[in-house]
Design a binder for these strands. Structure first.
Lengths: 177, 177
DNA sequence: GTCTATAATTTGATAGAC
DNA sequence: GTCTATCAAATTATAGAC
């Protein structure tokens, strides 16, 4: 991927994480990147293409930040605590919602390509968490625990974001840690 | 409130719950109600006015459905189970996300009037749940439990909606019931 | 790869007639 | 209270020059 495309994706991600899929336009992105809107169309033909690409690279980056599960175990790090930290950092450092949490909320109004990528984010995260719970507790209820954790984290992000208080996030997820 | 305004609010709510604040327009609403877009402007001068009104009446209806807490206790009904049912019904009967859950996710991109109303939804719900936990358990950790429950329900709604499976909702919130 | 130019559509909003 | 008429701006998208 070229650096221009990276720039575009970065700007687009920020805008989507602020107000959802309909909160960005080719012109606005072009202005911020310093090119023309038609140039954005060159890299991403349609809005759905760009939206799906944003969701795809967000998922990749997110899983990268989680790191390799086996290595975490080897280093005697609690994978669940790592997982929580990645979520929390999104709220405190990026100062924005989880992109796929937001797009997940409005999934019924998204173009199929975008909705599909959002679904993949959730599937891959549940997969990661399920493995983490299996390694940690060896329980057969690992998948249920995974869905519980992901749901609680996404919901806590919304609560904390609306009420404008990071302590709300910490209190809501207290039972996880 | 007149019936026309009710009609407009009803149609608008449905559209917002599908794709967020930017997923409805005065023209689309007018078409579905059977009037002209300028007539919608008569009832709700600006889009922010309409958005805030939708959030306000959604909150009122939601709290109405919860019912009076003291009466629930008197009738020996578990208020938490009632609360969960109201959320679950939104997903199964209305077949849509919680309006304020969705708007809460994109709160950073909303006009202040709308964001304010969304915030009130969360405040009032935490209040209701806190009282419920106080009555049920008499615990001082009632507010924390309230935030946990609300966050988990909103997050579970997103998960279930994205993955297109109501069982995901039930599994995610299993620890609540 | 980025540009100019432009098209077609949609959008939020207003003025004034009935 | 609803309509017609209209507006300016924004939006997605395309064709073709450099």
């Amino acid at each position: 991927m070229q650096s221009r495309e990276k720039e575009i994706l970065k700007v687009a991600e920020k805008m989507v994480r602020k107000g959802g899929y309909n909160a960005f336009s080719f012109r606005e992105i072009a202005d911020k990147v310093g090119i023309k809107s038609s140039s954005v169309h060159y890299h991403f033909p349609t809005k759905a293409d760009l939206g799906a690409a944003v969701a795809f690279y967000y998922t990749e980056n997110f899983l990268d930040r989680l790191g390799n599960l086996d290595e975490l175990i080897k280093a005697r790090k609690d994978p669940i605590k790592t997982y929580i930290k990645v979520f929390r950092d999104a709220l405190t450092k990026d100062k924005h919602m989880c992109l796929c949490g937001l797009l997940g909320a409005e999934v019924n109004g998204l173009p199929p390509e975008v909705a599909g990528q959002v679904k993949i984010f959730f599937e891959r995260n549940i997969e990661w968490l399920t493995q983490a719970y299996l390694l940690k507790n060896g329980t057969t209820a690992a998948k249920k625990a995974a869905m519980h954790t992901l749901a609680l984290l996404e919901g806590s992000m919304i609560l904390s974001n609306v009420l404008g208080d990071i302590k709300v996030f910490d209190k809501s997820i207290d039972s996880l840690a």
